[in-house]
Structures are given as structure tokens and as C-alpha cells.
């Protein structure tokens, strides 16, 4: 997994869980730093998926952010208090 070099400076909510984050980093980075590498299941087979490319290419890290579905977690900058879910 991954760990932070710099300390977090805010929190966000993933499902019902509060996780530490740094404002401006990508949502996918915040999830991975919190040990969350499984963010959705595929529409076809229900296979679990997580962030893969981190540059907006693979669309594997799709999540719901503030009620809006199908956002690429690797392209969404963290804002303090942000709410996201699979």
C-alpha cells in the first residue's frame, strides 16, 4: 500500500467512513492513502476494481462525488468535507 510523507490537513467521507486527506490531492490518492484500493464493481461481471492509471485514462476509479455519478476519482481534487461513495 502507500503511506503519506506529509500529514493530512482535512477529512473527507467515503461511504460512511471519515478518512484523512490533503486538500487539492486527487480523491483517488486520498482513498489509497487510507488503504482503500477497491472503489467499485464492474457493470458486466461485478468484479471489484480500483484506481489503476491515476491519469484519467482507464476509467476504473469511477465513484460518486457529492451525488454525481461516474466521476473519475483520480481527476477530482479533494475539498475538505467532500462526500464520496462507490
Amino acid at each position: 500500500m502507500f503511506e503519506r510523507v506529509e500529514p493530512p490537513d482535512c477529512t473527507i467521507t467515503w461511504q460512511d467512513r471519515e478518512i484523512p486527506a490533503r486538500a487539492g490531492e486527487s480523491l483517488a490518492a486520498a482513498l489509497l492513502a487510507a488503504g482503500i484500493n477497491r472503489v467499485r464493481v464492474t457493470g458486466m461481471s461485478g468484479a471489484p476494481r480500483g484506481p489503476f492509471c491515476m491519469m484519467g485514462v482507464c476509467f476504473d476509479c469511477l465513484v460518486t462525488v457529492e451525488g454525481e455519478g461516474a466521476r473519475q476519482a483520480c481527476m477530482v481534487p479533494v475539498v475538505a468535507g467532500m462526500r464520496a461513495s462507490p
Binding site: 502507500f2 510523507v5 490531492e25 490518492a29 489509497l32 492513502a33 484506481p51 492509471c53
Partner: peptide
Amino acid sequence: MGVGAAQILLKSAGLR
């Protein structure tokens, strides 16, 4: 993940 993906994490979010 990709190595490039991990490098992005290291550079932009300081995740090692």
C-alpha cells in the same frame, strides 16, 4: 496499478 500511476501518487500527493 501502473508504475506511472504510483509515480503520480508520489509526486502529486506524496504517497510512498
